[in-house]
Design a protein around this nucleic acid. Structure first.
Length: 322
DNA sequence: ATGCATGAGGC
DNA sequence: CCTCATGCATA
């Protein structure tokens, strides 16, 4: 089965360790008190992080969608974006910066995770630490355009500060890093390949299935409804992320009911009834079940997503008509 | 580097 | 419910 057993919220009492590197701004020399310690000892208990473990999440009050910065108009890519001289919203500039950033970061000998933590030391208003994931995504431009724009100035500030500190090296014994006690770990559901293929096929014709549709899909693939819903949400985000590569504007391509039904049918019964199939393998501790194998996907046709739209209609009508 | 997830906001 | 920004857990 899909084991998604994470334990809901739960914060460690915090205090979590005094994290090591306090000043990761200067990784090379690793330690200059000036940049101060992340959190830990005397840290003001003011964090409203919401996550599990202990990292912070910094989005302070107010705006959200604007991210840390703001949200400039940013329209999806038209070729001729010579309209606004705003060099900061230019995808090209972002791309260039991301690359420079990564190179210089590496040159400084700092990891993505280090950068994330060090950001908190920058003490910029409203800016706290970020995860390795986010830094990685920034570098690979796998964030939304607005998110990239919001993060750029922050990372740029860090980079400058880090390079400045790298110049005047210093040394200091190091800060200890007592790793905190273990916490409950949340489990990640792992959707098996066959199911994933079915979901992708469906997504190709209808990226935004209704709640009922989602329920139907979940049923057929033997996945929890929420897992399917989240999958579609994440898929949409991915599709959107940096619309680079060209403009693929917001087409509302609506699939005919027939098309949807067709795909639903094609995904059908990937999982045998009952038999709690261990679709997702227990990632990690095997709290889970015995290996159950799933049947091969029933997709009648292996079509490229794009093709599916053009070819499926006829078939759909003939086969299913929803 | 990425997949699945949470949560704040917005409707 | 969705969108968005983010992150833990993983591969």
């Amino acid at each position: 089965m899909i084991k998604t057993n994470y334990k809901k919220h739960f914060f460690p009492q915090m205090g979590h360790h005094g994290m090591e590197g306090l000043d990761m701004l200067d990784p090379l020399t690793s330690s200059s008190m000036t940049t101060l310690a992340p959190m830990g000892e005397g840290a003001p208990p003011h964090h409203q992080l919401h996550g599990y473990g202990a990292m912070n999440h910094v989005m302070n009050h107010h705006h959200h969608a604007g991210g840390l910065g703001h949200a400039p108009p940013a329209h999806l890519g038209h070729p001729a974006a010579a309209l606004h001289p705003d060099t900061d919203t230019d995808p090209r500039e972002l791309e260039a910066f991301a690359e420079r950033f990564k190179q210089r970061r590496i040159k400084l000998g700092v990891t993505q995770a280090d950068v994330g933590k060090a950001l908190a030391n920058l003490k910029l208003p409203g800016v706290g630490a970020l995860s390795q994931s986010t830094i990685c995504r920034f570098e690979s431009l796998t964030l939304s355009h607005n998110n990239m724009i919001a993060l750029k100035p922050i990372l740029q500030a860090w980079l400058e500060e880090a390079e400045a500190q790298a110049k005047n090296k210093r040394r200091d014994p190091d800060a200890p890093s007592v790793l905190p006690a273990g916490e409950k770990k949340r489990k990640r559901t792992s959707i098996a390949a066959p199911e994933k293929r079915s979901l992708e096929a469906y997504f190709a014709v209808q990226p935004r299935p209704s709640g009922e549709k989602i329920t139907a899909i979940a049923e057929k693939l033997d996945l929890k409804k929420n897992v399917v819903r989240v999958w579609f949400c994440n898929q949409r985000q991915k599709q959107k992320r940096m619309n680079r590569s060209r403009a693929a504007p917001p087409r509302h391509h609506h699939a005919t009911p027939g098309q949807e039904q067709y795909f639903l049918d094609s995904c059908e019964r990937v999982v045998p009834r009952h038999a709690a199939a261990a679709t997702s393998r227990a990632t990690s501790h095997g709290v889970d079940a015995p290996g159950v194998h799933r049947l091969a996907p029933r997709l009648a046709l292996r079509l490229a997503p794009g093709l599916a739209l053009r070819l499926a209609p006829g078939l759909a009508r003939g086969l299913a008509v929803g």
